Amino acid sequence: MTSVVLSQPSPLRDLASSAPIKQDFDITKAFHRILEDEAISTPLAAVMALTELIQNSDAGTMFELVKALNDGAEALKQHTANPISLNAGCELFIAFVTLFPHDSANFSDLKAELIRQGQNYATEALTYRKKIAELAVGFIKDGSIILTHSYSRVVMQTLLLAHKQKRISVFVTEARPRGLGIKTAEALTAAGVPSTVILDSAVAYVMEKVDFVLVGSEAVVESGGLINAVGSNQMAIIARAANKPFYALAESYKFHRLFPLSQYDLPSHNSSILSFSIPNPEISTVSSSSSSQDQDKSEANRNKLVPTPITQEYISRNNPDVDYTRPDLITLVFSDVGSLTPEGVSQYLVGMFAG
């Protein structure tokens, strides 16, 4: 399933009103079962779950099948707090099915071929991180000091490969609210890579010491911009101010036809993020037989505000998980399809989904 096969529309366009699926198949359960494999990321798990949906579909026409896939994708989104990378995988697979060129004798043969292609793509996609790592290592000089953010499988693979060939040191942000930078630092230290965890608020402090910034991605959008763990945007801004390269690593199944203009255009944004809490007045009940002094104290308590306890859990709920980095702040995007400028990502996406 590549950009080549996404270039011709299918002539199958039948009219139907239902999208029958076997009753014992639950795409959400299939999706979460697939995600239990640490090597599989969210968009790839979506592709694999939708492939299983085809296997369990009783659809007799292309219209029914596409409707079943769209319904399945919608069901997955309903059970995901941050649907961005999930959307990228669903979008890619549904476009593939819709535009798949074929000469099948009947619809059953077509479904079997779609299942085979989906399974082959999933197998091939698991090699993408290795391709990206080999490409990106060529840009890492011996003795490099690297700044990375949060936790990314493809970044980890790249850093571990670089460590085998060159001397590197890595600063890792703590990456609140999820704190996944600690996971990265622990894995690097276990592999013998010199690494130090820094506060998110110390990015500007450490930027003068680093040679470049290297981050992963939740998605790379149509503008060539990047959606990644919150804090990536401020790192890119500081890197630009310090004239340091900002590199992003992204498998091509994370390329997403989305065009945000600001942070608030992201599908993950909602009204509860960065909302202001309103303190509650302290409530005190006084009986009618109470003294005037007690009543005066009660009146004073009514004007007293009770602050909301500020816990790490409360901060996490009130803050975004991801943010958007503009394309002009990104130096290069390393992908399994090559090293691309942000403009190159836009061109690739256009060709990938051309009908």
Rank of each mutant, 00 (worst) to 15 (best):
V210A: 04
R153Y: 03
A112E: 09
L69N: 05
R33I: 09
R317S: 14
S289P: 00
Q347M: 10
L261R: 12
A229N: 05
G192M: 04
K29N: 13
V97D: 02
N56D: 09
K111R: 15
L305M: 15
V97C: 02
A187C: 03
G216R: 02
I21M: 06
T173Y: 02
I315F: 10
N233D: 12
A175Q: 04
S201M: 12
A59F: 03
T51P: 03
S252H: 11
P281D: 11
V47E: 09
I182S: 05
I278L: 03
A122W: 05
Q8P: 00
A191C: 04
R13I: 13
N318L: 12
A112Y: 00
M352G: 07
N82C: 03
N243T: 08
A241H: 13
V170N: 12
L65G: 13
L50I: 02
I140Y: 04
L12I: 12
L161D: 01
S275D: 10
S232A: 13
I27P: 10
L44I: 05
Q55R: 15
G179D: 06
G138W: 00
F255W: 03
S335C: 10
A187D: 14
A136C: 09
A75L: 04
N56T: 03
A88H: 02
A219W: 00
A59C: 12
S275L: 05
L53M: 14
T325D: 02
V322C: 00
K209I: 04
